[in-house]
């Protein structure tokens, strides 16, 4: 006969067994991060994040639903939605201005920061950059075009209606291109009058709001030459696509992938550990070769095919031009209105 004590004892044991994973889970720290989707997201979810979770005995909650900054803005600063924010540099500067992210991440917090190229921790960066792409010109190789050598080649009259760039208010590559126009046709990256004049001369031009769309426009032949980052072209390497990337002689603009920690994070040590982990040479190599990003860590040794094309030496990274996003963001509303009027119609 089953006694009441036996029933109660068995029930308690069963309840403890069932509750064990959630009790364990409650004791495990959770790191909340943002990260990209696509191929990058696949590598992160399949390899990088599970390895991090295993090593640091934590769980990582990764948000891939862009845009991240408005969500971070809406959360309390003392209990932010993210512990680590991964965005491009322009957005990090916005967050920094609002006190949503830290100023710098130093080797004291993440030892691998000591090994990054100067651009990755320069005064143009808040937080620390983990990768960069080079913004230059993508072009079709089957349209009889000679490989562009200058940004001015995009203004070739033959490319009327077949050149492409971005909707400047919503895309940082478009914003970089505008600043580059100021440098090429005026006194420098901040010569907006020269940039506006040059932009007017580029009409008719096809504008898109994200780089994936530019890739499709180049692949379909909808544009013959367009502003794009090297990764957006190199990722089709080996697929026999008639597209190539050119680095203009005036320099390429940097499209940095930046990590930063939120000051109100409750798991700051784990957040710094994640930043450090992302800067480890093996993590850097895996992601750099997976998505054709140039690594920030100087110690990374890429396979020859990647090493040849990506910015992996001091000489190559010297061609990178980093925009002053603090300056740009302060004028963004005026710039947005001006370029919208220029490009409309």
């Amino acid at each position: 006969m089953i006694s009441r004590r036996t029933v109660l004892g068995t029930g308690a044991l069963a309840a403890a067994t069932l509750a064990a994973p959630s009790i364990l889970h409650a004791q495990t720290k959770t790191l909340k991060i943002t990260t990209w989707g696509g191929k990058w997201g696949d590598i992160m979810k399949a390899t990088v994040l599970p390895a991090f979770e295993k090593e640091f005995k934590c769980t990582v909650s990764a948000d891939q639903a862009f845009p991240y900054v408005p969500k971070l803005q809406a959360s309390p600063k003392n209990d932010p939605l993210y512990d680590v924010l991964h965005t491009n540099s322009n957005e990090q500067w916005n967050c920094f201005t609002e006190g949503l992210v830290m100023d710098k991440i130093t080797p004291k917090e993440a030892p691998n920061v000591a090994d990054v190229y100067p651009w990755a921790a320069s005064d143009k960066i808040v937080g620390v950059a983990i990768f960069t792409s080079a913004i230059g010109l993508g072009f079709r190789t089957d349209k009889g075009l000679t490989k562009p050598t200058s940004w001015k080649d995009l203004a070739d009259p033959k490319l009327a209606g077949a050149r492409g760039s971005y909707i400047i208010p919503v895309n940082s590559l478009g914003q970089c291109h505008l600043m580059m126009l100021g440098k090429i046709y005026g006194k420098g990256l901040q010569d907006l009058d020269a940039a506006y004049k040059a932009l007017e001369q580029l009409k008719p031009i096809k504008l898109v709001d994200f780089t994936g769309q530019m890739e499709k426009m180049l692949l379909s032949g909808e544009v013959s030459m367009g502003v794009i980052h090297d990764s957006g072209v190199y990722r089709y390497d080996g697929q026999n696509q008639p597209v190539d990337f050119a680095s203009p002689s005036e320099g390429v603009m940097a499209l940095e992938q930046v990590l930063n920690v939120t000051p109100g994070s409750k798991v700051k040590e784990l957040a710094f550990a994640y930043v450090d982990y992302m800067l480890r040479p093996d993590t850097q190599k895996l992601l750099a070769e997976g998505v054709w990003y140039s690594p920030a860590n100087k110690k990374v040794k890429l396979d020859a095919k990647y090493d040849e094309k990506l910015l992996t030496t001091e000489a190559k990274v010297a061609t990178l031009i980093q925009p002053d996003w603090k300056w740009y963001n302060a004028r963004k509303e005026d710039i947005d209105a001006r370029v919208t009027k220029i490009l409309k119609g």
Binding site: V69, P70, N171, L207, Q213, G345
Partner: peptide, 24 residues
Amino acid sequence: LMGGTDVLTLPMLIAQQVGTSFNP
């Protein structure tokens, strides 16, 4: 997606303000 540079509507401006100008 369809409008290019010719079309600017209020929902597009609202999205710009939230998503890239961060001015909700």
